[in-house]
């Protein structure tokens, strides 16, 4: 297990390095300069570019960026003079993270409950009901849900605020909007996992032992059925945590997603790069975490990693 962890973390760091390099050269490939504002003189523009070190060879800029990155310095925004990229991230991330993690939690809990209920129920009405709710939930775009919620709760009923992040109430709608799709997927995966596991022989033995149904479902089956859910949830959580541009612009939340789209529109190289590296690190990190968690949960990999070399 320890060697597996070490190997996996090492390759994770390597992926991160590849990501940084790819992102760096991709942003440099973008046409247009961040300093092309109105009809400024070419000489002035060149002056600014020299100031920021953009006239030096690309490789030098790259190495410079890497060495800064190692020290945790992501540079200074080109478009917002004097604002460090890290500041932008630290301002936007907490908001996004709060909404994202609530959405992850909500989708895991609600999705699992729905999925398990659907799998164990003997009533066709419940089964079909949950089935169509989950299909509908995942078939409608999340901003359609978002717009409908805004219209219903904010405009018609006027019970919830629809913009900003002032109090807990204002989090409800964005979290709901973000959580709908992953909830439906989790419910589907849970249902399939349970459907598969409930037919296994060990359930028969558990019943023969005289254990109660709740115990069998909650302890015996759940531990075997939740692997696919985790495998889905890892990357999905990464995207929820790094923010959704759509949800953030509907509810007017100053989060990472909006920051990123705006930075691309502004050609703000350092900000694009910084955000890409940060979000990529979150994605790679959570992928890694999921892999380790799955390895830990399945005893075959946990105990000695046998068969890996076969």
């Amino acid at each position: 297990m320890a060697s597996y962890m070490f190997k996996r973390i090492l390759t994770g760091v390597f992926s991160l390095f590849v990501l940084v390099s790819a992102a760096f050269f991709l942003t440099r490939l973008m046409p247009g300069s961040p300093f092309e504002v109105g009809n400024s003189l070419p000489s002035v523009q060149a002056e600014i570019e020299r100031e920021y070190g953009l006239d030096r060879p690309l490789l030098e800029q790259y190495l410079h960026y890497l060495s800064n990155l190692l020290r945790g310095d992501l540079g200074i925004s080109y478009k917002k003079p004097g604002v460090a990229v890290t500041d932008v991230i630290w301002r936007a991330f907490p908001v996004t993270c709060k909404i994202g993690s609530l959405a992850v939690l909500c989708s895991l809990v609600v999705g699992s409950v729905l999925g398990i209920w659907q799998a164990v129920t003997k009533r066709a009405a419940v089964y079909n009901g949950i089935f169509f709710v989950t299909i509908l939930g995942s078939a409608v775009l999340n901003f359609v849900w978002g717009s409908l919620f805004v219209w219903l709760f904010g405009v018609k009923l006027k019970v919830l605020p629809v913009v900003g992040t002032s109090d807990w109430k204002s989090f409800l709608l964005p979290v709901l909007t973000m959580a709908i799709y992953p909830t439906c997927v989790v419910a589907r995966l849970m249902r399939n996992g349970f459907g598969r596991e409930m037919r296994k022989d060990y359930v028969v033995l558990a019943r023969a032992k005289g254990l109660g149904t709740m115990w069998i479902v909650g302890v015996h089956i759940l531990k075997n059925a939740c692997l696919p859910v985790l495998q889905y949830m890892g990357p999905a959580a990464a995207f929820l945590l790094t923010g959704s541009f759509v949800v953030e612009s509907i509810f007017n939340i100053p989060g990472l997603g909006r920051e990123f789209v705006n930075s691309i529109a502004n050609r703000d190289y350092t900000l694009i790069l910084g955000l890409t590296v940060f979000m990529g690190a979150v994605v790679i990190g959570l992928n890694l975490l999921t892999d380790l968690l799955c390895a830990w949960l399945s005893p075959t990999t946990r105990v000695g990693m046998t068969g890996a070399g076969e």
Partner: peptide, 25 residues
């Protein structure tokens, strides 16, 4: 296996907006 899987990780981690902007141009 290692190469393909790490390539998949990187492909997942780069925001699609970044390269789609370039591609559309």
């Amino acid at each position: 296996d290692c190469l393909v899987m790490r390539a998949a990780d990187v492909a997942d981690a780069i925001p699609s907006l970044l390269y789609v902007v370039l591609l559309t141009l």
